[in-house]
Simulated assay, not measured.
Amino acid sequence: MGATLSTRDHLLQVGLERLRSTGYTATGVKEVLDVANVPKGSFYHYFPSKEEFAVEVFRLYATGEMERSARVFGDRKVAPVKRLRRYFEELISVYGQRGEISGCLVGSLSLEVADHSPRLRSELQAVYEGWQKSIADVLREAVQQGELAKSTRPDALAEFLLNSYEGALVRMKAEKSDRPLENFLHFAFDVLLKKQS
């Protein structure tokens, strides 16, 4: 029998589902409270504002994504570039057009609130930096193992891959199609990161 979530954790879970499906602006505190079946006073006991609530929801999301990357990237039985491809394939299966809720919360919040909320922008920047570093570490490993040329610049390449993936997600939303994500996978792995002889 699983442990019952605390009121705070329950609010964060509901908030995560609402932020992912409707975005920051369209998600109201009252809506979260109604879905969670929690009184208003409980919300403000745990969170001083909607913005601070969104920060905590985003941290919950980011923690789950860090666990995903650690699991996939930590499988040392698989070659580094193959691990990286598996990672992006898993992300696409979860956040692509056919996912339960398509789109990435990092990208969505970046587009929706980064210009208006220095607090959330700071959280987003930290997540992008950590995400990019984890990709760059796998690329460094690929260079060390001879999968990629010694001249490869892992940090810059990781930034390019991350930006390309996030851009493909945005276009996927506009087109209601996984084609941009499939195109990203093809050019990233069958062209750019193809094993060099």
Rank of each mutant, 00 (worst) to 15 (best):
E166M: 13
D190F: 13
V72N: 00
E147T: 06
Y61K: 00
V94E: 02
L12W: 00
P118D: 08
I92G: 00
L105M: 13
A54M: 03
S117K: 04
V143G: 06
T4D: 01
V57N: 00
Y61F: 10
S21E: 14
V138Y: 01
D115C: 13
F160G: 10
G130C: 08
L169G: 02
L192K: 09
W131L: 12
A168M: 05
K133I: 08
V106R: 00
R98I: 05
Y87Q: 04
E182F: 15
R86D: 08
K194P: 09
G96L: 03
Y95T: 05
Y44A: 08
S164M: 09
G23T: 10
E100A: 15
M172C: 14
L84G: 04
A174I: 12
E175N: 08
S122R: 15
S102G: 13
L124A: 06
L181M: 11
V32L: 13
E166F: 11
E123Y: 01
E147F: 00
L192A: 11
V32S: 02
Y61E: 02
S69C: 08
S49V: 07
Y128C: 00
R68L: 12
R119W: 10
A174D: 08
L192Y: 07
E51W: 01
N183Y: 15
V106P: 00
R76Y: 10
L157C: 06
L192T: 07
M172P: 00
S6Q: 12
P154K: 00
G41W: 07
Q13I: 09
G99V: 10
D115R: 14
